[in-house]
């Protein structure tokens, strides 16, 4: 009898999208999607989401390994901290980033005074905001996989003479690839859909910080049809990415 709740769950996910499709003005779709504002937003979204995913992987993999393998007590606290971006409302996350990297934030002030670098209102701020909210998805899926696998393969590798870095590179990472793939896809999807932290921390300016979700929100103020068309575009991009990346990730071949 699982199919009743399963069907409900599917309906909850699919029906709103069907609603979106039903409301789309298909006659105006090409014109709405090819406006320069839409194309700029799409390009910016793809570039920033890819960059954020790369940062998530580069930083998240070592973090997940440390969290899964460390036996110290403080790690339990750390694990909870890593999950914070998942529970924080994105707007609060954006504010937190401002308090750190904004002009009056302690790191932001330092950067401004010493190097003349200002992060808010730049594309870099978009990438940072997306990385911030997407990182937990990568870390959680990896850490789960690491815990499930245990460290037996790593132990064997070290007795075979592999130094810790070799073990990490030749055993830990390849074994993690399936989880890494799905974690990266999740992170990318989250980064692509990121809104609250971006608008708070990076602002909204066409071609610089106005990603697709921000453009959707912007258009929704003036022209709902345009917003719906853009939302459709966002969905298509997300579905494409998941469909293309997912099977390869699951296969787990390097």
């Amino acid at each position: 009898m699982l199919w009743i709740p399963a069907g409900l769950a599917l309906a909850l996910v699919v029906l709103p999208v069907v609603g979106l499709l039903a409301r789309t003005d298909y006659a105006r779709l090409p014109e709405l999607l090819t406006s320069s504002a839409s194309l700029n937003a799409l390009q910016l979204s793809l570039v920033t989401a890819v960059l954020s995913t790369v940062f998530c992987v580069l930083l998240g993999v070592p973090l997940a390994v440390v969290l899964a393998r460390s036996r110290s007590r403080g790690v339990r606290v750390l694990r909870a901290v890593v999950l914070l971006p998942l529970v924080l409302p994105p707007v609060v996350g954006g504010l937190a980033l401002l308090f750190l990297l904004g002009r009056n934030g302690f790191l932001g002030y330092l950067l401004d005074v010493t190097a003349g670098i200002r992060i808010p209102f730049t594309t870099a701020a978009v990438v940072i905001a997306q990385t911030f909210v997407a990182m937990p998805f990568l870390v959680v899926s990896l850490e789960g996989a690491l815990r499930g696998a245990g460290d037996r393969y790593e132990l064997v590798a070290s007795t075979l003479g592999a130094r810790p870095w070799t073990v990490f590179r030749r055993v830990t990472v390849p074994l993690l690839l399936p989880a890494l793939g799905s974690g990266a896809v999740l992170s990318f999807a989250r980064a692509l859909g990121e809104f609250g932290a971006t608008i708070t921390f990076a602002g909204s300016l066409e071609g610089v910080t106005r990603t697709l979700p921000l453009e959707v929100y912007n258009q929704a103020e003036a022209d709902v049809d345009s917003a719906v068309a853009l939302a459709l575009l966002l969905i298509v991009v997300a579905v494409l990415v998941i469909a293309v990346a997912r099977p390869r990730a699951v296969e787990g071949r390097p």
Binding site: Y153, V156, S158, T159, G161, A162, L175
Partner: peptide
């Protein structure tokens, strides 16, 4: 001496062959 420098070979109950190689 760390495990990787000991010149020790370990054979466990399970073969634990690296599945990706």
């Amino acid at each position: 001496v760390q495990p990787h420098d000991r010149g020790v070979g370990l054979l466990a109950q399970d073969a634990l062959l690296f599945p990706h190689l």
